[in-house]
């Protein structure tokens, strides 16, 4: 189990993370969603050991994390994540040796990620499609026996018809190897595909504003920010009809404004004078089935529903 408590991070004056708690259970799926600049990528990089944090603690089974090897990052861009001058065999050889695995394990891992080892091993990255490259990146992460894969927008650069295959692979790895997946994205539907029962963290300006099982949050989001975010997902007219309570934020995000109360108050369609005064904390105020940080939580139906 990997845990983060009160993680904060500032880049010069910009407060990227303002005290985030999260738990990634073994074999589980956890998703972070939010707008660009909300801090979700920074959090993933801190967890993978690529970025320092200012305050808070990172724990693995209750102990502070010193070695980040069990946490492996799957990058967004499989085109630049692989060394173009090395064959796939060379790419996999060194990390396997590092962990004392025989090279034969490379074939096993490539088969596991759905590639034909006899075809792939002798080839260079440029000879593979984007989908195959992302599978190689995943196989490379698996060479060091990780406990958590941090997938940051891992399918956004993959062709649409191939995306689902990669998502299905991540889901299978959870079941077959017991690897947990931290899925960072702005596309909630892909997060749901990787783990509908997993926890969804909605992040806004470096804080978690809503947290609960993916399907619970989708069915009845209570924080207006989550509602705006989910309302923005395109509706497949013809197959779906828009949710009845679809919501648009009042204003675009202005990061220069530092509200004293709720961070979403300047953009919130339901803001009250109280919201400008008090900063709400993550709780279950109003007996909601999920955690949220809103003084006036109200369930709204914003997600598109199937037509007929």
């Amino acid at each position: 189990m990997i845990e983060g408590r009160g993680i904060t991070k500032a880049f010069k004056q910009v407060q990227a993370l303002r005290g985030v708690d999260f738990v990634i259970p073994r074999g589980g799926a956890v998703s972070f969603i939010g707008e660009s600049g909300c801090g979700k990528t920074t959090l993933g990089r801190i967890l993978a050991g690529l970025e320092s944090h200012d305050e808070g603690r990172l724990l693995r089974d209750g102990e502070p994390i010193k070695d980040f090897r069990p946490i492996q990052l799957i990058h967004q861009d499989p085109y630049s994540a692989l060394n173009p001058t090395r064959t796939i065999a060379q790419i996999l050889r060194d990390p396997l040796r590092l962990r004392g695995h025989p090279f034969s394990k490379a074939e096993e891992l490539l088969s596991l990620v759905g590639l034909d080892p006899s075809y792939v091993l002798s080839r260079y990255p440029h000879q593979l499609s984007g989908g195959m490259r992302q599978r190689v990146v995943i196989a490379r992460a698996l060479t060091v026996d990780p406990e958590v894969l941090v997938a940051d927008e891992a399918v956004s650069m993959i062709d649409v018809s191939l995306r689902l295959g990669i998502l299905a692979l991540l889901r299978n790895l959870r079941e077959t190897l017991g690897v947990s997946v931290l899925f960072i994205t702005h596309d909630v539907a892909t997060a749901r595909y990787v783990g509908a029962e997993g926890e969804l963290y909605v992040i806004y300006r470096g804080t978690v504003v809503e947290r609960g099982p993916v399907d619970t949050v989708l069915a009845g989001p209570v924080h207006p920010y989550t509602q705006c975010l989910l309302s923005a997902i395109p509706v497949l007219h013809g197959l779906e009809v828009p949710g009845p309570d679809r919501l648009v934020p009042d204003e675009p995000l202005d990061e220069r404004v530092e509200p004293s109360g709720c961070l979403f108050e300047p953009r919130c369609p339901f803001a009250t004078p109280a919201c400008a005064q008090e900063q709400p904390l993550l709780s279950r105020l109003g007996d909601t089935p999920q955690d949220h940080a809103c003084l006036f939580p109200a369930r709204r139906h914003v997600v598109a529903v199937p037509a007929r």
């Binding site: 649409v160 018809s161 191939l162 995306r163 689902l164 299905a168 892909t190 595909y193 598109a304 199937p306």
Partner: peptide, 24 residues
Amino acid sequence: RGLINAIPRLTGPVDVAKPLPGTP
């Protein structure tokens, strides 16, 4: 049909979405 079936959905059974085999 394959392209539309490969879109993950927000409601309903997760496995309604099916990957399209092969590569473009």
